[in-house]
Amino acid sequence: MSVQGIIRTSQYLTFKLDNEIYAMDITTVREVLDIIPITKVPQMPDFMCGVINLRGGVVPVVDLRLKFGLKKATSLKETCIVIIEVILDDEQTILGILVDSVLEVISLDPEQIDPPPRIGTRLKTEFIRGMGKKDTEFIIILETTKVFSAQELAIVQAADDMPVPETSEGANAEEEKNE
């Protein structure tokens, strides 16, 4: 069973978050950095953990754990910042993604990728492009354009100032609010 739209073999960068393996299309990835100091930007949701200096440019960093409703990482030993390119508001934007550790670059054929399950994941289904399989492990392939859309990122912290956890429940609440 394959996913509509995935018709050729592509390369993916895999990384770990909590105990699960995620992947992103390699074409969106610019580089991987070791963790460096991040300047917090006030009045942003917790998952927007701040900005870094990338060779003189100011680049926002998203903590993917918090974005996905996980707890903040306890150890930063292997933490990396994956620098990706996305389109926000019709503007090509560089974004840093904080992940637990970066694993490898793999190739997946279309037939190795299944459609996202309708239930049983903590993520909004639209965030997932498909489920890859390598050896015995499942790999969650992210739909970067959906995860890092302007709508998802440009949320100013609510007045009561509580971080909005992106659990499936929280996500639904968020959706209702948007309507």
Partner: peptide, 17 residues
Amino acid sequence: PLGPAFKNIKDISGATI
């Protein structure tokens, strides 16, 4: 400039290094 990711932020008008 902080870019579109921070377009809704009010108190901050930019960044510097």
